[in-house]
Design a protein around this nucleic acid. Sequence first.
DNA 1: ATATCATTTTGAATGAAATTCAAAGATAAT
DNA 2: ATTATCTTTGAATTTCATTCAAAATGATAT
Lengths: 192, 192
Amino acid sequence: MDTAKRERLLKAAIKIFARDGFFKAKVEEIAKVAGVATGTTYLYFKNKDDLLISIFEEEMTPIIEKMKIELEKQKSPEDKITTFIKRHCQVVEKNPDLALLLEVELRQSNKFLHEYKGTKFKEYLDLIGNAFEEGQKTGLFQQEVHSSIFKQLVFGAVDQISTNWTLSKSKKVKLADAADQISRVVLNGVKN
Amino acid sequence: MDTAKRERLLKAAIKIFARDGFFKAKVEEIAKVAGVATGTTYLYFKNKDDLLISIFEEEMTPIIEKMKIELEKQKSPEDKITTFIKRHCQVVEKNPDLALLLEVELRQSNKFLHEYKGTKFKEYLDLIGNAFEEGQKTGLFQQEVHSSIFKQLVFGAVDQISTNWTLSKSKKVKLADAADQISRVVLNGVKN
DNA sequence: ATATCATTTTGAATGAAATTCAAAGATAAT
DNA sequence: ATTATCTTTGAATTTCATTCAAAATGATAT
């Protein structure tokens, strides 16, 4: 098992999937970009789907870990939520190819790879949910809003805005500004 | 141009796309369900992507029209936004197959994401954006939040929550309750 | 260093599905 | 009824994902 070759294939796949979309992307081209023959791809990955799943597994894990560490540094639930939104946007800004892929394929995953992907994505969402519940316990946030609604509301908002930013050509709006506005609205919206 | 035949193809496509997913669905089977030969599909639609985009266009148009009429009845910007969220959720609840198709499969189409970005979707988003700007003018809503951020925030939140509801098996949470909570958070979040 | 065996890589062959298009069928006009 | 035009057909073509027999590379023993 040549780890470097596997890594080259993963990076090439991120690039090509982001550019062409998962279904239009040609395995032949991913192999070419990685500098191997078409068939070699199938020595390192079961098939095209497995290539996508491996990207989730291997690229998402460290991102979630870093996010967890960052949130633990924040003392107040408010700061945790602000930090989550800000850092999510920073990750998107820094890895537009990966972001586009995760953003767009996530829904498909929700449908087809539900069993596999469920835990990883849930883990990410729960970072928001847990911070919110903590804030509810201390009386900072309203009791009337359910945490499972709040976490999806925040993720949905951030995801929509950052996906749109990634796809837009101009990039005249800074994503960090958008992050500030999202934080302002959602926190103001649930504070007592 | 045989309108009835075109309509039969569209309805067949909604059925088969919803059952098998866009990429697993075979054009041959859509044609069979519609009672025409495979090639006939290509006389009415440019290709498989165009079939999906046409579903979006033609099913979305009456939905947007009804939403517009409903919003015009509301006097305050606040009521317009609450109504938008509530009615979006009602439409999703009433047409789960179509909703799933628009929410999940549409995003898989490269054409939709990169090339199409149609006016229809913008039109829908602007219903939120316009209500928000109206509220800003009358001093009801904060000036610091930009309408293009607000409209995407609201749509992203509603879409995330309703997509998740559609995909979830249990359906124990009522989507109408979720809609109330979303309205509460986003309006409370931007009010002066 | 050479022969033998094992592992990895290759890219042409296979199969499945989207798309095309020449021929067949239907409709209208004279 | 015959010719011209327009529509539909489905087999042929094209485009990929995936497979696999052969070639290349590497490891081990003599």
